[in-house]
């Protein structure tokens, strides 16, 4: 029976590692553009890439620890199961130096992770470290169950209150690519969360607060934008699109949207 457990724990570790190894190529990894043979989804914002890097760092540490401890566990179980009656056993319980080692080493690793990630965290969460030139492109107001979005007119800056020439969309957030932009996130009713999985950007919208969220998008295309906070029975309906376009296209889109929004329905009679 002892041999069985040795094999069991080693085999389960091998299966777990194997599954993780093949997961990316089967689309069971982060959303984003799949890259190369490995096939892991790559984030489409600079902060998203840094967040992914943090994840991979932690993943490597965990993987080494996991494989190492399971190898030792397997060895110990196997040794214990196959030991001959006349062999002398090694009794290590209460070893002071061992206890010190496995307290200090993990603490060191945890401390390292805690310090190492602070830079990314600060860059994302604290204004001082975010790109200084992030242009406020829109005010995004969540409500049950949709996103209402207000943009300043072309060439103007976003004001905290609506302006006569503002442009509006609903459930479609248009942003320019290639440079940091920010949105002012609000909610009209309960708590919601702004989440663009492919950018790795997630921020709660809290009643009474206007929260600036900055990000940049590297590829012009559409991204899924969802609510990541269970906000009521219609939470599943809070699906929207983030439409990233080049700078020129963004200006052109805004002109077109403004034209449509100020449409007076009058058609010049044909001459």
């Amino acid at each position: 029976m002892g041999r069985f457990w040795a094999v069991f724990f080693v085999a389960s570790a091998v299966i777990a590692v194997g599954l993780c190894w093949v997961a990316p190529s089967h689309g069971l990894w982060f959303p984003g553009t799949l890259k190369g043979g490995f096939g892991a989804g790559v984030a489409h914002s600079s902060i998203g890439k840094r967040i992914d890097d943090l994840f991979y760092l932690v993943l490597v540490i965990v993987a080494v620890t996991y494989i190492g401890t399971h190898a030792v566990l397997g060895y110990v179980l196997w040794r214990g199961a196959t030991i001959k009656a006349e062999e002398k056993v090694l009794f290590s319980h209460g070893s002071h130096s061992l206890e010190v080692i496995w307290t200090i080493v993990p603490s060191g690793i945890l401390l390292y992770i805690a310090l190492y990630q602070m830079d990314v965290w600060a860059a994302y969460r604290f204004k001082e470290f975010s790109p200084k030139k992030a242009e406020a492109v829109a005010e995004v107001t969540a409500r049950q169950f949709e996103w209402r979005i207000r943009y300043p007119a072309r060439g103007k800056t976003l004001m905290p209150t609506p302006q006569p020439d503002d442009v509006y969309t609903v459930n479609e957030l248009h942003v320019p690519t290639g440079r940091p932009v920010s949105i002012s996130l609000k909610t009209e009713d309960v708590q919601h969360a702004f989440f663009v999985p492919e950018l790795r950007i997630k921020q709660d919208a809290v009643p009474g607060l206007t929260i600036p969220v900055w990000f940049d998008v590297d590829e012009p295309r559409q991204y899924e934008m969802v609510c990541a906070e269970l906000c009521g029975w219609g939470h599943y309906k809070m699906k929207a699109r983030l439409i990233a376009v080049s700078d020129e296209d963004f200006g052109a889109w805004k002109d077109k949207a403004a034209l449509e929004q100020f449409d007076d329905g009058f058609k010049k009679p044909a001459e």
């Binding site: 204004k127 790109p131 992030a134 004001m159 905290p160 920010s182 206007t210 600036p212 900055w214």
Partner: peptide, 8 residues
């Protein structure tokens, strides 16, 4: 009122 988020 004046702009809120011009420069973080």
């Amino acid at each position: 009122t004046k702009s809120i988020v011009t420069d973080h």
